[in-house]
Every structure is written in structure tokens, then in C-alpha cells.
Design a protein around this nucleic acid. Structure first.
Length: 445
RNA sequence: GGUUCCUUAGCCAAGUGGUAAGGCAAUUGACUGCAACUCAAUGAGCGUCGGUUCAACUCCGAUAGGAACCUCCA
């Protein structure tokens, strides 16, 4: 199946062509681990998780890397204010981040590198940039020379002259141009390392380049993802560095997810008063937040509110009920829940392959759910149809990363169910209600 | 100041140059021993103004409102 992706680099929907046949390499900028993740942090996690699952389902060998930025001013400031090490801060919030990733049922990255594990690589990388005359040293700082590469601004569609004229008054006059950015920052405040330029630490923009360079052949990947805000300057600078270092622009396709707006909870938007991912997950569960995040096209802004969450909760329960009833019905008739054949979910896949149109894919899921509910009320039940639908829904849920459980019935369960039906038929409602309670407690009914 | 983007029914949200998917909520009805689940029916002409076109919600321009980036926030 042909996969279409909106490439932020060209601002066009393009047909995906991998660097290597049947393989896809994806790198998503991960979190700066200085705080507990908020709802906004979940969006790239979920969006790129679905992208990854789609590629996997379509038979690609996927290599998915997402980093932790564990060297950063905010981490250092936090470490200082709490009087603990940066490592302690990072460890705490990496843990917090992964708890959230697990809670929304996102697959863990194949590799999740940390900046602190790549310092020698970073230093070597900067050396090459210096050798290539794309960087310069001033008083122990190293800067990237933006003027050394062609087409700076191509990703964000920014004209260099506009940028310069719009640039704020630079306090740092050491740079040749206000657009130049720090590769290595001389400092003894907070965590730092020795280099031949100074004691200091790497700039933010270099780490992703270095990790991609270290972890992927030729330092080039198929898809680079991240939040919209990273487009400029972060991703623009990655392209610039990679051009100067490897002569390539680091990624073929760039994908940027939109931001989350807060509807009625607007008061929470002000800084320091964001909605923590954990709080939402505790209240609604990972599946519901996932459904909300996938209910809007990934490039569009998403409105988040308790009303939206409540609606998604109802929707998810619908999915859950139907899927569970299918599984129970099939088991009661001793039909196997497994099948070697690939289910026919072409329309669903088509939507996802159309630049990850998850809203339309979900619409397709609801269409099948409706079909399932109809089939479940047919008498007699058509088990071939039920099984076909069950397997289709199962595949869809899997690709969307929705985790829906169903009970596995043992012989006793089946006996209780048969008794329940019999008592009900005999109009022994007291007894049938009692059995119904048992079945409901086991989530069979 | 520079750049980019958004505006579709009460709410969320797809979509296409040829007369608007889906979901939630609401109303009505059906099923049912009761309950849960479920099913069916009902609503907008796409911010405003103008232009291009046989035809625009979809293209162009203007205007109003909102947002993002240019300041190491997903």
C-alpha cells in the first residue's frame, strides 16, 4: 500500500519512498526531562506511535529512536534549586515520562539515547564542523556558521534577511551573525565536560544530529518527527549541521504535530499551570486520552477540554462493549479467536496511509462497531460474520494502539452463562439476576 | 515589527471546485421481565465582504476574531 506523508520540508503531500526497501527509520525529538510531562507532551508520543504501528503492520522493518534531552538549562536550574544532581533530576523525569508512555500504551523506542551518553560523539561531531569551516570558536564557545550552508530556512520557509531584521537585539555580540547558534557553550555552572575549547556543555541543536549520526547508517533517516514548535530553529539547525557534517539534510520526510489548545480550561494554559498527563490518565485512562489525541488530524491544533474527554470516554466504552461482546459470543460457541489470514481493513489502512488521517480511520472503526452490534443481535448468530468482524476490529485497535481486554471464558463461565440464559427463559428472574451479577462482575456480560 | 497557520451544527471533528463523513450531547421511536448494552430517525450550507468560475465551504483578495514561531516549551 502506498503511504502518503505531508512533508514539512516541501509543504506537500508526498508518496513515501524509504531509503532502504521495506525498512523505515524514524526519529522523534523526545522530552527535555526537567518536569512531569503534560498533556501536550503526549501528542507526539501517540501520533508517532500510530505511524510506527502502521508501518509495522504494512510489513516494514521499523527502527524507532527517540531521545531524552538530559542536559539543559532547565534541568540544571532545577538541580540547583533542589540541591541534587542533574542526573537525579533526569532520572526522576525519565521515569515519569515512561510511566506516561506506558499508560497511553505507546511502544517504547527501540533506542532511547541520552545526551550525557553521547558527549564524546558530540565533541567529535563539532570537530568535524570546525574542520569543514562551518563552525568557529570564540572565547571557549563554539558557534555554527549559518552562512556556510546553502538554503538555510528551507524547512521553516524563513527568509534569512527577514530573520536577521526581525531578530532581537543580541546581547551576545561574539557571534558573526545573529542567526549563528551555539554548538558548545563554555560554562562551569551545572553539569559540564572537558573539551579542547573549554569546560562546558553542548548546545541543544547538536544532540539530535549526533544521535542520528551515531545510530543510523550515513547519518540519514526516513522520517524526522516532533512538535510544530521544533521546526524552527531546532530542526532547521539540524538540517544545517547535517549538511555541513554529512552533506545530507538528515531526513527525507519531516512531520510536525500541532499543539493542544485548552477549551473551557483556558485558565490552565498560563505557564506553570498546565494539565499534567498523569492527572488526565488517572482520571480517564490511557485509551481515552489516546482516542482524543487521535480524533484530530495530527497537524491541526487540538482542543482539549473536560467535555471532549467525557465524550471520548463514552466512545471508548462503546468500542470496548462491542469488542468484548464479540469475544464472548465467539467463545461461547467455541470459535477460535485467532486466524492466520489478514483481516480486510483496506479502507481503514487507506485513511492512515493518507498522511495519518486518524479521524477518518476512527470513523471507519465506528462503522465496523456498528456492524458488529447489528450482527450480535441477529438470530441465529452468524459466527463466520462475527469472527470476521472481531478480527477486523482487533487489527484496527492494534494499529491505533487502543488496548481493549476481553475475558477468556473457562468451562465454568460457560456453564454459568448457559444457566443464566436458561433461568431467564424460565422466567426465574431472581436466579437469572443473581447469575447476571456474577457474569457482569467477570465482565462477561 | 517579520513569518506561518486557523475559523465547518450546542460541543469535538473530517472533507471535496459540482449542492457538507463521523462522534458526543439533545429530541423522538424500537428492542427489553427490569437494567445495561444496542438500533433507527431528526439538525449546519461551512467567520464576514468581495472577486474568479457554468459551479466555491473548497481558488484569489480584503476584513474581523484566534493561535504559533522569530526567545534551547511537544
Amino acid at each position: 500500500m502506498e503511504i502518503k506523508i505531508f512533508n514539512s520540508l516541501t509543504d506537500k503531500v508526498e508518496t513515501f519512498v524509504p531509503l532502504r526497501p521495506h525498512e523505515v527509520s524514524i526519529y522523534v525529538c523526545g522530552p527535555t526531562v526537567y518536569n512531569n510531562p503534560h498533556v501536550g507532551n503526549l501528542r507526539p508520543v501517540v501520533v508517532f506511535d500510530v505511524l510506527r504501528r502502521l508501518f509495522t503492520y504494512l510489513g516494514y522493518k521499523v527502527r524507532f529512536v527517540s531521545n531524552y534531552t538530559d542536559v539543559d538549562d532547565k534541568i540544571i536550574n532545577r538541580a540547583i534549586s533542589e540541591n541534587v544532581s542533574e542526573e537525579e533530576i533526569s532520572r526522576r523525569y525519565i521515569k515519569s515520562f515512561n510511566e506516561v508512555v506506558n499508560a497511553v500504551n505507546a511502544l517504547r523506542a527501540d533506542v532511547a539515547p541520552k545526551v550525557t551518553e553521547h558527549i564524546p560523539d558530540i565533541i567529535r561531531y563539532i570537530e568535524v564542523l570546525l574542520e569543514n569551516n562551518a563552525a568557529y570558536v570564540v572565547d571557549g564557545d563554539v558557534y555554527f556558521r549559518v552562512a556556510s550552508i546553502a538554503n538555510y530556512g528551507e524547512l521553516s520557509n524563513i527568509n534569512i534577511d527577514d530573520l536577521i531584521s526581525g531578530a532581537r537585539v543580541e546581547e551576545n555580540s561574539k557571534k558573526e551573525s545573529p542567526l549563528d547558534f551555539v554548538l558548545w557553550k563554555k560554562t562551569t555552572l551545572g553539569i559540564n565536560w572537558e573539551s579542547r575549547w573549554s569546560k562546558g556543555r553542548p548546545g541543544w541543536h547538536t544532540e539530535c544530529c549526533v544521535m542520528i549520526n551515531s545510530l543510523f547508517p550515513d547519518g540519514k533517516i526516513d522520517i524526522h518527527g516532533g512538535g510544530f514548535d521544533l521546526k524552527f530553529p531546532h530542526h532547521e539547525n539540524e538540517i544545517a549541521q547535517s549538511k555541513a557534517h554529512n552533506g545530507n539534510s538528515i531526513a527525507t520526510y519531516w512531520m510536525h504535530n500541532g499543539f493542544i489548545n485548552f477549551g473551557e480550561d483556558k485558565m490552565s494554559k498560563s505557564l506553570g499551570n498546565v494539565i499534567l498527563a498523569k492527572d488526565v490518565i488517572d482520571r480517564f485512562g490511557g485509551n481515552v486520552i489516546r482516542l482524543v489525541l487521535l480524533g484530530t488530524y495530527y497537524r491541526s491544533p487540538l482542543t482539549f477540554s473536560s467535555e471532549v474527554m467525557a465524550a471520548a470516554k463514552v466512545e471508548f466504552e462503546k468500542i470496548e462493549n462491542s469488542y468484548r461482546q464479540l469475544a464472548v459470543a465467539l467463545q461461547l460457541d467455541n470459535v477460535s479467536l485467532n486466524d492466520e489470514n489478514k483481516p480486510d481493513i483496506e479502507i481503514f489502512l487507506h485513511h492512515l496511509a493518507s498522511d495519518l488521517n486518524t479521524p477518518n480511520a476512527i470513523t471507519e472503526l465506528f462503522a465496523i462497531i456498528k456492524k458488529a452490534n447489528g450482527a450480535l443481535r441477529q438470530k441465529p448468530l452468524d459466527y463466520l460474520v462475527l469472527k470476521k468482524i472481531f478480527l477486523e476490529i482487533k487489527a484496527m485497535l492494534n494499529i491505533l494502539g487502543l488496548k481493549v481486554d476481553y475475558p477468556l471464558l473457562n468451562t465454568e463461565d460457560k456453564k454459568i452463562f448457559a444457566d443464566y440464559l436458561k433461568r431467564k427463559a424460565d422466567k426465574n428472574f431472581a436466579e437469572s439476576d443473581r447469575l447476571r451479577q456474577i457474569l457482569m462482575a467477570k465482565r462477561i456480560l
